[in-house]
């Protein structure tokens, strides 16, 4: 769109200039030069591992032993592997519940923090704490909270007389799933809340005033003003959230290592277990590669479904 203006210096020097000086002065080429370092880094550190991983998934490489190309054999194995399918199910469940809950709670918190509150700055920093604590550390804390013998929850409930035995939080499949999802929500909410808060603060207060005068109730203000204006940022933040949740590894590994009986194994943890711990790099790579279509789908949905709005400039 601005190309017309930007191209002018190049056009001026077109006649009688050598190819090199044209390369040096053309705005288009200049852009390419500036992009090159970043592109190179991206290629080296992002594309290469990805391609390498996908390549590995077509081999029977084991740790310490180079492998041969085996075609789709790893995938055929996985196709018949009930643990793999369980991990797919777990991942989808984990991602769906955690993302929806994180969105709901995050949005609620953001709306709350956007109001005039006493000690606003303090409350905002408190909200950020779960995000600041290293994941492994918080996972350990959760592990302790949900421990079968020393769980503070069981202890409190027992002392209140509501319970006569300890709950085996991480030993029971349903409880274990609930606990890891809870931990993920706890950890993910601040990111969403703070990002949405930033989005909320870009909405001009006079829009709410105009809507109020037009007769909008607080709910209608949210429904017709806040929410639509927030959709672009919701799209971005939820895409990230879904991607991070889908590929989550640390929390699970620190809390349950995929147990009990694979009930909390996600694709990422299963891939690590098969690929690194059991040494079947090829199979691990295949599991990891199997995540790619899901992630692509998530990106597509947000890209086409939410991000481009006619009313936005640019």
């Amino acid at each position: 769109m601005a190309d017309i203006a930007l191209d002018r210096p190049a056009a001026a020097s077109r006649e009688g200039a050598s190819a090199w000086s044209r390369l040096r002065t053309s705005r288009g080429w200049l852009g390419l030069w500036f992009m090159a370092p970043a592109a190179l880094i991206l290629l080296l550190f992002l594309a290469f591992p990805l391609v390498k991983g996908i390549w590995l998934s077509f081999t029977d490489t084991r740790i310490g032993r180079g492998g041969a190309f085996v075609g789709l054999e790893n995938y055929e194995w996985l196709w018949d592997d009930s643990v793999f399918w369980l991990s797919v199910f777990n991942t989808l469940l984990y991602t769906a519940i955690a993302s929806v809950a994180k969105f709901g709670i995050g949005l609620y918190l953001a709306l709350l923090l956007n109001k005039r509150l006493p000690f606003k700055a303090l409350i905002r920093s408190i909200v950020l704490i779960p995000f600041v604590v290293p994941t492994v550390l918080s996972a350990l804390a959760f592990w302790w909270i949900f421990d079968s013998q020393f769980s503070i929850i069981s202890w409190s409930l027992r002392h209140l007389g509501l319970l006569d035995h300890n709950i085996d939080f991480l030993g029971d499949p349903t409880w274990a799933r609930t606990c890891v999802i809870f931990a993920n929500i706890w950890r993910g909410v601040p990111f969403i809340a703070i990002t949405l808060l930033a989005g909320l603060q870009t909405v001009s207060p006079s829009l709410y005033e105009a809507a109020t005068i037009d007769g909008a109730t607080p709910w209608q203000n949210f429904r017709h003003i806040t929410f639509p204006l927030l959709t672009p940022i919701i799209a971005v933040v939820m895409t990230f959230s879904v991607l991070f949740t889908f590929t989550d590894f640390q929390l699970i590994w620190a809390m349950t290592r995929g147990g009990p009986v694979n009930a909390t194994h996600l694709m990422a943890t299963l891939s690590y277990q098969r690929g690194i711990l059991s040494g079947s790099l090829g199979e691990g790579a295949a599991i990891a590669t199997a995540m790619v279509p899901f992630l692509m789908l998530a990106i597509m949905i947000s890209w086409f479904g939410l991000q481009n709005r006619k009313w936005q400039s640019g």
Binding site: S204, E209, I225, L229
Partner: peptide, 18 residues
């Protein structure tokens, strides 16, 4: 405000951008 039956034009117009 909504029951006062008034309409207001703001300095920055406050048009709903979406």
């Amino acid at each position: 405000p909504k029951e006062r039956d008034i309409a207001m034009v703001f300095q920055n117009y406050a048009l709903y951008p979406h």
